[in-house]
Every structure is written in structure tokens, then in C-alpha cells.
Simulated scan of single mutants.
Amino acid sequence: MIWNRHHILSLEDFTPEEYNTVLQTAASFREVLTRRTKKVPTLQGQVVTNLFFESSTRTRSSFELAAKRLSADTLNFTASTSSLTKGETILDTAKTYLAMGTDMMVIRHREAGVPQAIASEMDRLNVRVGVLNAGDGQHEHPSQALLDLFTICTLLDPDRPRLELLQGKKIAIVGDILHSRVARSNIWSLTASGAEVHLAAPPTLLPQMFGEFVDTRSEERGARSEGDRGNHNQPSTVNCQPNRKLFLHWQIEPALQDADFVMTLRLQRERMAQHLLPSIREYHQLFGITRDRLQLCKPDVKVLHPGPVNRGVEISSDLMDDPQFSLISQQVTSGVAVRMALLYLMGGGKV
């Protein structure tokens, strides 16, 4: 197993070996979480600071619990009750926690690039403080994508989750892809596994340019021209880096056809500056995940959602609670083990 990262800011340059290191480490911590004593002394004496400049339930609680399960001390920051309201800058806030002895910072912010800026400042100061991106603007959410990957891989092989298990699988990501940092991170991780990733959304939430997302370093781009946009039944295909396959659809049916997994995303109405949808009701009729729509998928299809869920909008309420199809509760459980793994690896744990 290989690990040389000090910060986790993006999955864009993650290697297959690094993915497998995270998966295997998370599997060991999943076993710890089944014990009567769900705590190990791995990070005893270290301080993990959760700098959440944006509201969060699952991610913040998951990181806090993960740190405590590793015996680390935790500090929690809330923007509304902090010195930011008095004019303090974000970097000065980070340096305040640095002066308190912080070893790792978990950062969420509504603007893309803030975790990178803090990581750069820590590097400039030549201090060994690791920075983990817990979601920044419309950029990325690495730990969510890694827990999604872990949830799927442990379903396929509970004892040895690994990237190669997804080779050739079809995974549909449906919903507000335009505003989703989760989708961006999942595109990197899932296409790295060799899976076929099919994006489906209305054209306003899935612009044609999204097709080049994973192809930033490729000389040849395989996306169809604007002239092909009128035929929504034909996917826009991208020939990306080796083993990366990404497809775009402006109708949901071809994305779901024979899919092994379906990931549906929340409509992020708080990020929509314009009226991008005629109505929520129409969106559910055209892109909502229902039992009827799942008949297009493989018989053993499973559904994921990063949360929070708008019941009856992106997924029907009864389907969300059905353990035959839904992996949503497993995602939350997986989040603690995966975030334990990330803090362990960043904190100098030996693999």
C-alpha cells in the first residue's frame, strides 16, 4: 500500500494505488467500529480542527466522530459565532488554530479554493499541518466520493474492497450535476476504477462542456459537437485518459439502462442564481428516481444519495427507505470508517 500525501484537496490526481490504500485502511477501521470498544489510540495527542464555514450535518459529525474514534482531540469552528463576524480573515482564523497546536484541519467553505489557500499558507509557513477538503464551492468533496466508492466496493467484496471491482460496471449519476462538488469528485474516482459513468440531467444542469471534465490533459476530445445536442437519446461520449469513460445524457432513460448503481443528487436550489428548472414537480416527473424507473436497470441495482435528501424530488420517499435498493444509510456508516482512514493516513499512520 502506498501513501505519500500530506493534504487531501482533490481526487483529480489520485492514483489507483492510493485509492486502494484508502479502501483497505477503511476496511480495517470498519472492523474496529464493530467492536464493543470502538476506539484506537492511533492519533492520541494530535489535534483535529473542523473549520466549517458552511452548514453541514453528516460531514461535520462524521469527521468529529472519526477523530474521536482515533483518540484525537477535536476543535470545532462555527463561522456565525467566530471572529469572522468581527472582520478576521479566513487565513488568520486558520493561523489562530495553528497556534493552538492543530495537527490537521478539515475545511468546508462555500467558495472553491479555500482549502487549497489554507494548505498553501501552511506549506509557506513550513509547518506539518495537513489540510483535508470537506467540500469547497462547486469544486470537489473528496471524502464523500471516497465513502461512496467504499460503500460500493464493500458491497461487491466485503472482505477486500478494491478499485478493480468496478471495472466494467455502469454507474448513473442523476441530478444537479452543475452545482455538485460530489459529482465532480465521483467522476474522478469512478472513472479511475474503469467503470462507465453516465451523467443525466436537464441541459441547464448538465452543460455540454461538462463532457470534457475528466479530459483536461488529453489532446483529443471525444465530446460531440453542439450540433448533436438536439438528439437527447444519443449520449455525448468522451474518450478520456486510459480506462476513463464518461457519458452525458439529457434524458434519464439511456443513463439508467442496465445500470448497476444509480447515484442521485440533491437539487441545490440555494446555489441556483437563475431559474434553471420549470418546476420541482416537472423535475421529479422527468428525472426523479422511482421504482418504475429502476426497472430499466439491472435487477440487483442499488441506489445511493450523498444527502441531505429532498424526499419526493430526486428520489421517491418509499424507495429511499427500502433496504432492497437503498444504500443511503450504509453511506453514512461508511463515512466514519473512511474518514478515520483519511485522518489516520494524513496523521502519519503506518500502512
Rank of each mutant, 00 (worst) to 15 (best):
D228S: 14
D228V: 15
R229K: 12
R229N: 15
G230A: 09
G230T: 11
G230H: 05
N231I: 12
H232V: 14
N233D: 14
N233Q: 14
N233Y: 08
Q234I: 15
Q234A: 15
S236Y: 08
S236F: 15
S236R: 03
S236N: 08
S236E: 07
T237H: 09
V238C: 09
V238P: 01
C240L: 13
C240H: 04
C240S: 14
C240V: 06
Q241L: 14
Q241F: 09
P242A: 13
N243C: 11
R244F: 08
K245A: 13
K245L: 08
L246Q: 03
L246T: 04
F247Y: 12
F247E: 08
L248A: 09
H249A: 06
W250Y: 14
W250Q: 12
W250D: 06
W250E: 01
W250H: 15
Q251D: 07
Q251A: 08
I252M: 12
E253V: 10
E253K: 07
E253P: 01
P254D: 08
P254G: 09
A255Y: 02
A255W: 06
L256S: 01
L256D: 02
Q257T: 11
Q257R: 09
Q257P: 01
Q257S: 13
D258H: 10
D258L: 11
D258I: 08
D258T: 06
A259Q: 04
A259V: 07
A259T: 07
D260N: 14
F261I: 15
V262S: 05
V262R: 05
M263G: 06
M263A: 10
T264D: 04
T264V: 15
L265Q: 03
L265I: 01
R266K: 14
R266H: 06
R266W: 03
R266Y: 08
L267W: 03
R269Y: 15
R269N: 06
R269S: 09
R271T: 10
R271H: 08
R271K: 12
M272G: 00
M272V: 04
M272L: 10
A273W: 00
H275G: 11
H275K: 10
L276G: 00
L277D: 00
L277V: 01
L277F: 02
P278A: 08
S279G: 14
S279K: 02
S279H: 04
I280G: 04
I280K: 07
R281Q: 10
Y283S: 01
H284F: 13
H284G: 07
Q285C: 05
L286K: 13
F287A: 00
F287D: 00
G288E: 04
G288M: 07
I289P: 01
T290H: 07
T290F: 05
R291H: 13
D292L: 11
D292G: 11
R293H: 08
R293V: 03
L294H: 05
L294D: 09
L294V: 05
Q295A: 09
L296S: 08
L296F: 06
C297P: 02
C297E: 00
K298W: 00
K298A: 15
K298R: 13
